[in-house]
């Protein structure tokens, strides 16, 4: 058994703690100990964005983020977007625009969109495309995803 480290952090608004393996990625920790299966593993090397989460306000590839580095940080995963108050406008936009086919890339796309909107609620189409350049989708051809981000962007800009 490899070395573990106790960490305490905020996960989707709630304080949590875990014994993180020092060699584990945040992705493994979230999917494993926290059963947050929404964060997807699709490459494990930073090339696809399926594992995108937001850490201290910045989007990150959780597959390349050491789990121990979450200590003291604020972490948002896709599961944190849906609450009693309803579903997040970004999620709604992805549904309404037909941006979801197999859906495997969707949580990563949605988290990256949340991040992009937090930086800039009024994105141009080019900014949207560039903002999603680290997120691979094999099904949709991106057009409907880009429209979804534009629609969510219109909502956010209001």
């Amino acid at each position: 058994m490899s070395l573990t480290q106790k960490i305490i952090f905020t996960l989707n608004g709630k304080p949590v703690q875990a014994d993180a393996q020092v060699t584990a990625s945040a992705l493994e920790l979230l999917r494993g100990a926290f059963e947050l299966g929404g964060t997807k593993l699709a490459c494990g090397e930073g090339e696809c964005g399926a594992c995108t989460i937001i850490v201290d306000g910045r989007s990150r590839n959780s597959c390349l983020l050491p789990a121990v580095d979450l200590d003291g940080r604020e972490v948002l995963t896709v599961e944190g977007l849906w609450s009693e108050d309803g579903i997040d406008p970004v999620q709604q936009a992805f549904i309404d625009e037909g941006a979801i086919q197999c859906g495997f890339c969707t949580p990563g796309m949605i988290m990256q969109t949340k991040y992009l909107l937090s930086k800039n609620p009024r994105m141009t189409p080019e900014e949207i495309e560039r903002g999603l350049e680290g997120n691979v989708c094999r099904c949709t051809g991106y057009k409907k995803i880009i429209s979804a981000v534009a629609a969510a962007s219109a909502v956010a800009a209001e």
Partner: peptide, 9 residues
């Protein structure tokens, strides 16, 4: 350089 998520790290 890379993509936004990588640039953030």
């Amino acid at each position: 350089f890379a993509a936004p998520q990588i640039r953030n790290a």
